[in-house]
Design a protein around this nucleic acid. Structure first.
Lengths: 161, 161
DNA sequence: AGCGAATATTTGATCTTTCAACTTCGCCGC
DNA sequence: GCGGCGAAGTTGAAAGATCAAATATTCGCT
């Protein structure tokens, strides 16, 4: 356990560039959504994932899966969203452990209003600065990272039942 | 303001891969540091940046700059770090507005103990899964993003006085 | 000298996230 | 049919981050 494999200068620079750029991108997103729609990015994701589900409804567990949030984080966030009237939670009939999270009409309207500004920000901050070739390479690199995570931790597979 | 430039399918997939992979990487880092050294990544960064400064000392403003934290976030974090005895804050003699943040010996020891595990995690999660070629491309893409941010917002320039 | 703007930092309130229980419920084997 | 076990969700407290406002100094002018 003694021989730590330190980072080379090049790796160090890459790592710092990674930290700085992801931070800046996240902050830009957060600022934009907070400013224009009064919600954090996490809440936007919840609304967005629900909006894509059949009947705009998912179980809490599946919603946690597609957003990548912990059960607890999701539960607290849903409580806030429910207060605002953007989502509704109802107990499942057959399996009475699970609760169904559902996007309300109002929630959908809020999402529709927020989406253009959000997408515009993503585009401006991520895709506009990159050539199509760079974007393609970027995607390949991200895919390689995801593969590696899927192999060990296995937080993967947003597609299965 | 009507014609929103939505994301293409390819862009959508890239964006989601970006969100998922950065989240997984951040969480892995956070878990490792919390588990093995009992501190969040933000605190590690503060210690690391101080350790590289001459005399292991920086003004709060400059420390905020190199870490990319807001003045407020940094101030709160430093209060906790000071409680633990890992840093010290002393008022500057000439300009009595500014306070100097200094890494203590104990803080340096804690950082030295934490570093190998942290670096190992960065390597395992980021560099090991990528070929050297991919890593190089990745860095180029990140550089392009940083350039774009530097041009408008100008959060840049960690090198000037 | 003195006043207003600018700089450096802190503070308290509020929001979000995490962590460690805790409750409820379905399932499986006996 | 019941005893445990694992799955689904929630909860309360503590930690971290954000936001707006406050404080204390220095600087630039006149």
């Amino acid at each position: 356990m003694s021989g730590t494999r330190w980072l080379s200068d090049e790796e160090q620079r890459t790592w710092r560039a990674y930290l700085a750029s992801t931070r800046l991108l996240q902050e830009a997103l957060e600022r934009q959504l907070q400013r224009d729609s009064g919600m954090p990015h996490a809440y936007y994701m919840i609304l967005a994932m629900l909006s894509e589900a059949p009947d705009r409804t998912l179980t809490m567990t599946r919603l946690a899966r597609v957003t990548g949030f912990s059960a607890s984080r999701l539960s607290h966030a849903m409580a806030r969203l429910e207060e605002k009237g953007w989502v509704r939670r109802v107990k499942h009939g057959r399996d009475r452990r699970t609760t169904m999270a559902e996007l309300t009409g109002e929630g959908f309207a809020v999402l529709e209003a927020a989406a253009p500004g959000h997408v515009e920000e993503v585009r401006r901050r991520l895709f506009d600065p990159l050539t199509p070739e760079q974007a393609r390479r970027f995607r390949d690199v991200l895919a390689a990272l995801m593969d590696a995570y899927a192999r060990d931790g296995d937080e993967s597979d947003l597609t299965e039942p």
